[in-house]
Design a protein around this nucleic acid. Structure first.
Lengths: 238, 238
DNA sequence: AAGTGGTCTAGACCACTAC
DNA sequence: TAGTGGTCTAGACCACTTA
C-alpha cells in the first residue's frame, strides 16, 4: 500500500477524471477537507503539494485550492549548464562587434511580430569566434530596445555577448528564451565573414530574450557555419 | 522576516558558500540536525525539501542528506504541449512509410556514438505530410533496436509515428530526447521526395529517444523543407 | 474583515536500504 | 540490521489576500 497522501492524490485525480470534480472547481478548505477525508491536515497538505507541483491545482491564500488541469502535467526540463549553452555560445568563444547604430522599429529585420514597443532600438552587428580561430563561426545581429540602450558606451569593452552586458549593467537576468531555427542559403555578406560560398546552407537562429513579465531584453539573429556548429538539445520528461 | 525554514535553507547555503560545508559532505541526520538548529524536525524537512527541489542536496534512506551542488540549480523548463511538439511533428501531420528493412548496426548512418548495443536494427524509411498536401515536408529515417523490433507487423497500420507505435505496442513512454540540428545541402534522394532542388539548404534533425535508464527507443534522422518548417523552442528559466 | 493557506511544534511509528 | 528518511497525527498561531 502506498503512502496515504499519495492515495489522496489519486483519489482526487480519479474524482477529476470521473467528472465528479471539474477543472475550475475549488476544493474544500484544508481543515474541512481533511476531516471529510478522515486524515490530518498535514497529510492533506502533502497531497496538495504533490498536486500543485504536478500542475493539477493552484493554491492561493483566501482564494483556496483550485483545479486547473485534469491530469498531472508532464514537465519538459532541458539539460543545460546555463543560458550560454542555451543560446549556443560555446565556452571558449569571443564576440567581436563590427558596428553599432540606432534604428527605427520599422527597420528591424526580425521575423514574426512587429516589435513596435519602442520607437528606437540599438542595433549591434558582430561575429563570434572560437578558440582563437580568426575566422568567425557565426555572424550576429542584435536589437536592443530603448530601455536597455544605455549599454552603448559599455559595449566597447564587451567581448562576451550583448545579453551578458545588459545583465551586468542593469542588474537583470534572462528569464525566458524563445528560438526559431531554420536553414537558409547564406547571404553574400555573411558568407564573406564566415568564409563560405554565398548560397551555401547555413543555420539561422532567431532568438528573443526576456527578463521578466515578458519584458523584452533583446532580439538576436545569428547565422552559423554548419561545418563548425550544430544546435544541440537534451530534454527530459518529468 | 521570512519563514523559518527558508532561513534554514539560506543558512545551509551560506555554510556551503563559505566553505564550512562542501559538496560531497553529508548533513547530520534530521533529528540531530533539528535539535542542533533548535527547530522541529518538520521544519527542517521543509528546508530539506526546498534544497532537494533546487538540486542542492540529494536524500536517500540510510545514506542521509548529501550536498551535491553549491548553489540552487536553475531549471530550464521547456514550454511544450507534448513530445509531439518536441519532436516537431505537427498536429495535422501524417507519416507514410516507404520502406522497412532489417539492418546490421554497422549499416546505421547516424552521427555520434557507435550504436552497437544490438546487432540488428529495424530501419524504417518514410515521409511526413501535412494537411493533405501530397508533397511531404520532411523525410524520415528511423532505426529501432532489436528490443522493439516487434513493431514490424504493426507498422503497416501506423500513420502517426514510429515512437508512438512503440509506445502503444510495448506500453513504454519516451523519457528523454536528445536532438542535434544542422543545415545541410539537400541530398538528391530527399530533394526528389520534398520537391526541392538538390543541394538547396535543408534542416537535418538527428534525434535519439530513450525510455528509461537510458534505454534507447529509436534513432531518427529527419530532413525538413525549410520553407515549410522551422524548429521552435521556448525555454523558461526557474 | 475573515477565511484561507502558511508555518511551526512535539511527538510517534514505519519501511527501506546501504553498511 | 540498525540508522536513516518517510509518513502521519493533533494541535496552534499567523499573515496574507481577496471577496
Amino acid at each position: 500500500m502506498s503512502a496515504l497522501y499519495r492515495q489522496v492524490c489519486k483519489k482526487i485525480l480519479d474524482q477529476i477524471a470521473s467528472g465528479q470534480r471539474k477543472v475550475g472547481d475549488r476544493l474544500p478548505p484544508e481543515e474541512e477537507f481533511a476531516s471529510e477525508l478522515g486524515i490530518s491536515r498535514s497529510t492533506l497538505r502533502l497531497a496538495f503539494a504533490e498536486l500543485e507541483a504536478s500542475g493539477v491545482v493552484r493554491r492561493r491564500k483566501r482564494a483556496g485550492t483550485q483545479i486547473i488541469a485534469m491530469k498531472p502535467q508532464p514537465k519538459f526540463s532541458m539539460a543545460t549548464s546555463g543560458i550560454q549553452d542555451l543560446l549556443s555560445l560555446g565556452r571558449n568563444t569571443e564576440f567581436r562587434i563590427n558596428h553599432v547604430s540606432t534604428v527605427h522599429s520599422d527597420d528591424i529585420d526580425f521575423p514574426g511580430e512587429h516589435y513596435s514597443e519602442t520607437a528606437h532600438w540599438l542595433k549591434v552587428c558582430g561575429a563570434r569566434t572560437m578558440n582563437d580561430d580568426p575566422r568567425p563561426f557565426s555572424t550576429n545581429r542584435v536589437y536592443v530596445p530603448a530601455r536597455f540602450a544605455g549599454i552603448e558606451p559599455v559595449l566597447k569593452t564587451a567581448d562576451t555577448s550583448v545579453f551578458q552586458t545588459i545583465e551586468a549593467t542593469f542588474g537583470v537576468s534572462v528569464n525566458r528564451v524563445t528560438q526559431s531555427t531554420r536553414a537558409i542559403a547564406c547571404p553574400r555578406k555573411d558568407a564573406d565573414l564566415l568564409g563560405l560560398e554565398p548560397g551555401s546552407p547555413v543555420l539561422q537562429i532567431d532568438a528573443a530574450l526576456y527578463v521578466q513579465k515578458g519584458e523584452l531584453m533583446e532580439l538576436s539573429v545569428a547565422i552559423f557555419d554548419p561545418s563548425r556548429f550544430q544546435l544541440y538539445s537534451d530534454v527530459s520528461i518529468e
